[in-house]
Structures are given as C-alpha cells and as structure tokens.
Design a protein around this nucleic acid. Sequence first.
DNA 1: GTCTATAAAAAGATAGAC
DNA 2: GTCTATCTTTTTATAGAC
Lengths: 220, 220
Amino acid sequence: MHSQVRAHPSSGRGRPAGGSEGKRAAIVLAARRLFLRDGFERVSVDAIAAEAGVSKRTIYNHYGDKERLFLDVIGETYNTMIGAVVALMDKYLTDLPDEAVEDGIIAFSREVAMFAARTPERTAVIRLLMSEAPHFPALLAMEARPRGITASIAERLARLDARGLLDVPEPQDAANHLFALTMGQVNNRSMYGAIELSEDEVTRMATSGARAFLRAYRPR
Amino acid sequence: MHSQVRAHPSSGRGRPAGGSEGKRAAIVLAARRLFLRDGFERVSVDAIAAEAGVSKRTIYNHYGDKERLFLDVIGETYNTMIGAVVALMDKYLTDLPDEAVEDGIIAFSREVAMFAARTPERTAVIRLLMSEAPHFPALLAMEARPRGITASIAERLARLDARGLLDVPEPQDAANHLFALTMGQVNNRSMYGAIELSEDEVTRMATSGARAFLRAYRPR
DNA sequence: GTCTATAAAAAGATAGAC
DNA sequence: GTCTATCTTTTTATAGAC
C-alpha cells in the first residue's frame, strides 16, 4: 500500500529531556506536525511517539486515547490560526487617511489573500477540520470562531461609513463580501491549500476582488 | 483515473442483475456511498464488499487495489457534480428580458447557493478531494475542472455586457466575483457542508451577495 | 468470474517492571 | 512518570476450490 507514517526517531531528540511538561510539549509538537500533514487516520500513535522521542505509553498516560490528543492539538492549532487572522485584520484597516481609503483596502486585501495562500498550517488545519468534523462532532464547537474574523472587518467598515468614506449600511454583510472576494476566493480556488497558487494569481485575485468591493460600496 | 463503464466482453446488451457488469455497478455504488460518508482510510474493502453484496475477492479482481477503486469512484463522482453545477449555470442566466436582469441574477444566485448548500454529494466529494489530494496526487489532475463553472458564467455576463445591461469589462473576473459572493460564501461558511446552514441563512447570503455584485457591475 | 478461507502486517490500547 | 513488551482486533491482499 502507500507509505505508512514512520517518523525518524532522532527528530524529536535533543529537547529538554527532564520534566513531564517538556515531554508533553514534545508530544503536542509532534502530533501537530503529523496530524496536519497526514490526517487523523493515517497517523499512528507509534509514529507520534517516535517523532516526539517518548514512549507510546507516555502519550496514553497524558491523553488517554488518540482521539483526545487529536482534539486537543487541533483545537489549539485552530485557535492559534484564527488569532493570527484576526491580528492581521486589526493591523490593517486602522487609521486610514481620508484620501487613502481605497488604496488601503486594496493593500489590505492583497495582504490577507497572500497570508491565506502562504500559511500552510492554516489551510491544513481547516482542511482537517472539514474532513474530520463529521466523525468528531466536538470539532464543530469551533464553528463560531470565524465570525470573529468578519466581525473585526465589520467594525472597521462601520467606522469608515461613519466618516463618510464608504457607503456601508450593513457592515456585517459587507464584511462577508470583502472576505468572500479576497480570502474566500483564495480558499476556494486553492481548495484550502491543496492546490498551489502562484503569487501573481493571488495578487490579481485579491486586487480585482477588492476593486469590485469598492465599486459596490463606494459612496455615490 | 477516469472511470467509464467497461465494454462488456460477452453479452451484447442489457445488464443481468447477477452478471459481472451488474456486480461492478453495485461495487461502484457501494464504494461511493461509503467513501463519501467516511473517507478513504475509514472504509474497509470488507465493508464495501458487504454493502455491495459481493465478495471482497470480486472487488480485487475488478480494481486491483483499494486506491484504484477510490480514484475511479471519486473521479466519476466529481465529474458528475461539476456537470450538475454547469448544467445549473446553463439553465439560468439565459434569455433574461431587459427589464428583469437584476431580478434574474438574484434568483440565479439564490438557486445556485441553495444547490451548493443542499447537495451533500457535492460537498462531500469536494471535502474528500481536498483532504485526500496530498496523498493521491492523481486527484489534482481534476483541478482544472472548476474553471468550467466560472467560464460558463463569464460567457453569460459578456452577453449581458454586449446588450448594455451590465458593465463587465473583464467577464472572467466578474464571474469569479459572482461565484465568490454566492456559492463561495456558502462553501466557506458551511465548510463545504460540514456545518449545516439554515435555508434562511443561505437565502440571505445569496441575496446580499448578488446585490453587492449588481452594485459593482451595474452600468453607470 | 466468484466464492471461502487465510495469510501477513499494522493499528490502538494495556501489563507490569523500574 | 516512564519504559519495554505484549494483547487483541482489524486491515489489505492473496490462495485455491468451483
């Protein structure tokens, strides 16, 4: 059959060997790497133990079973990725000078689209979430999170509306549209990272998407 | 790779339920059902054999190994789904009377978004494609297909532009935008069907997306 | 072509020593 | 807490009869 997961035992060695906490961290790191790369079913607990440089029994002592380890690790990774996207949102779209709103939104869109296309951990964890959610309903508890992303955009758009720089009667809808026209386009076209997109493609998509957004929401 | 019904070696016509061709069809049906529901790794050849009502050995005689059966079945299912979407595109967006273009595009968007949300075979096969593509590079050969969908939209938009009913200088970009604002929104928000969306939610998303599209591409 | 029966390997989880 | 060694079940794939 196709290759089974066999990690190199050496790759996990050399870390602070001492305490229980160090081993736990090594397990999390190894599990994240392997789960994101190969999915739940294709990764064996043996492989995680080898990659982390601990025995399999130690993993079972810490987490009880493979499923719990998976949910723990993926949940944490997902939250980290959502946080990174929200941070990106907060970094841009703030304090745009009146005359640079349109350029600012275009630059923001490019940045966000490029981030979407070039952060393999983000795409991998979302692909994993989508494919495993039917088998681990607990994963669906995280569904509410992405709202935070567009909520963050909506807040900025409402501010731009208040300054009369955009015409955004429904900020939440508009935020969804900006998201769909930039990051959403990248997600769909790349199949969440399964298909590689060139930098040019991403830039063109984001730019044309942002321009369409501006035509729709520019004050008349 | 591609999966067509093989030419029957002995019989001239028909398909006796107990014959080789009948069994092959039963295998395909069972495999599609189980793979779409549970993914590649979670489905055993034993389970497929039981579901199809044939022996495991018969499956191996027909397909050689599990991977080939999977690629065959998923490839055929994916092509079928793409065809259904393109057919939907072709059904709408044609012969819109001058005064009903905007309403027609909104109706089209709702229809397409609802189809996207309510066709579990479509979402399941795309989720499967995304999650398995890294392990089966052959699946990536299908990546070119989705272009057919937006190309179909682009053609209609260009026609509406020629009639002066829309202002669409770049039909392919505009088609991508309409797709992103309707079906794309549904795909992203539902995580390709992993999260259930209410009918109201889908309708609201599609309607607001179509209206944003129209504001961006309405003639001035 | 199709079936029953059976390899051969790998998986998740546990026992018991230290 | 951690390790080595082992149990039990399930998996893919094949042998050989009909």
